[in-house]
Design a protein around this nucleic acid. Structure first.
Lengths: 129, 129
DNA sequence: ACGATGTTTCGGGAAATAGCGAAATGACCT
DNA sequence: AGGTCATTTCGCTATTTCCCGAAACATCGT
């Protein structure tokens, strides 16, 4: 039972219906990140995160662009899916503790120049602020 | 990767992420129906429809109650999922033609006393209007 | 040119999902 | 009590999803 006319909406909902992808969206709600930072915060293999991001990009929920050898990711604010996301934030309130912990960890990664792996100097200098 | 705190929202989104279940919700947006009418309109086996409805009920999107030997279904208007549904209707606009055809067929089933199978007399008398 | 690092693609195995028909259940009617 | 009809539960198969590690790309730095 495909029922083609609903396909785009169903695809979007399928993409939203996964805890990891919701976490990624909440994470990006705090600002753009690069793929490896997302993987680090979520504790998942980079390939896994990459695949989740592919889904989010395919349905227009996030946008990605290359910066040096990194790929940056952010919410696609101009998306037709805007109202859906707006309806979603309040419903994620029950996980706010965990989600803001994710965001804090992302901030720490981005701002800590002491960890050359997570935050190589070139990036630290260029993209901060 | 379970990430428990998001589980209720994820469950709801999973249930929404299926063309048949979206069709059912749109169908019920036009008024309550009994399970066999839903099955008839959708052209699916009653057992299949029953399983879809179980999911919708489990996540609080619809409510069901018995009327004689039928089970009636309607949107659960008081649900916490209200804002989500409201955000959803506009996004189903692309399928409006098909969905209103569904609703028309449901109305026809409910109102046609000539078809004793789809619309047994006892029900026609009791529940009309 | 080479090596290191971030990312994506690919192959595979475990788990969840979707659909159906058959059988079981519950309610009505005679 | 027996029969009929609406519904649900069960058993099954086919398909899809999820996650990973290995391998393939791509880009930077030396």
């Amino acid at each position: 039972m495909t029922f083609e006319p609903l396909r785009p909406l169903v695809d979007t909902l399928k993409v939203l219906a996964h805890p990891v992808r919701l976490r990624i969206l909440a994470l990006l709600h705090g600002g753009e990140l690069c793929v490896c930072e997302v993987a680090e915060v979520l504790g998942l293999a980079p390939s896994t995160v990459s695949e989740h991001l592919t889904g989010l990009r395919r349905t227009g929920l996030v946008r990605e662009w290359k910066v040096g050898r990194w790929v940056h990711v952010a919410l696609a604010d101009e998306a037709a899916t805007r109202p859906l996301l707006e309806a979603l934030w309040p419903l994620m309130a029950g996980a706010e503790a965990e989600l803001s912990r994710d965001r804090a960890q992302a901030r720490a990664l981005r701002c800590d120049p002491c960890d050359p792996v997570a935050c190589p100097p070139s990036r630290t200098l260029q993209e901060h602020a």
